Simulated assay, not measured.
Amino acid sequence: MFEKIDYWISAASYSDRNGTWLIEAALIHPNIGETHEYGEEWTREEIIEKCDVFVFCLITKDEKGNWKRGDQVRKIETDKGTFIRVDGLKMTGDYLGDIPFFEGAR
């Protein structure tokens, strides 16, 4: 599908930590084959750690149920900490666009 992408993120759960919205966990899919049904829950810390080595992009289903590639996920360093964002803005808080919310198991 997209050779340079290592992992897809299809859903995330957030929480408010002292007035800052941070990802609690996200549903991660390895970029293998054409199916993205297999997903694994990763914590925010696991994603941040792996952002230095692997490329992550968002993926969502369109109205016909087909997978659609989204924006690339980036680790952003600010004076307030490290955040995971798709917009590249050096702002406080994590932001993964309009992917679905899910209740993580962790």
Rank of each mutant, 00 (worst) to 15 (best):
M91K: 14
G65P: 02
E45D: 08
R106D: 11
I28H: 02
S13L: 07
Q72L: 05
E46H: 06
I48Q: 06
F102T: 05
L27P: 04
N18S: 11
V53Q: 14
W21D: 15
H36T: 13
Y38S: 07
L89F: 12
F2K: 14
R85Q: 06
E40N: 09
C51H: 08
M91I: 07
I84D: 00
K75W: 05
K50E: 04
Y14H: 02
R106T: 12
C57P: 05
D87W: 06
R85E: 06
H36I: 13
N31C: 01
I84H: 02
S15A: 14
Y7N: 09
E3W: 05
D62W: 00
N31E: 06
W21L: 15
L22G: 00
E37M: 11
G70V: 06
K50S: 08
T92L: 10
T92A: 08
Y95F: 15
S15P: 12
G81P: 02
T60P: 09
I84E: 03
K90P: 06
F54W: 07
T20L: 10
I84N: 02
I48Y: 04
A105N: 14
V73R: 04
G33N: 05
T20V: 13
I76D: 00
R17L: 11
E34W: 10
M1C: 13
R106F: 15
F102P: 06
D6Q: 05
Q72Y: 09
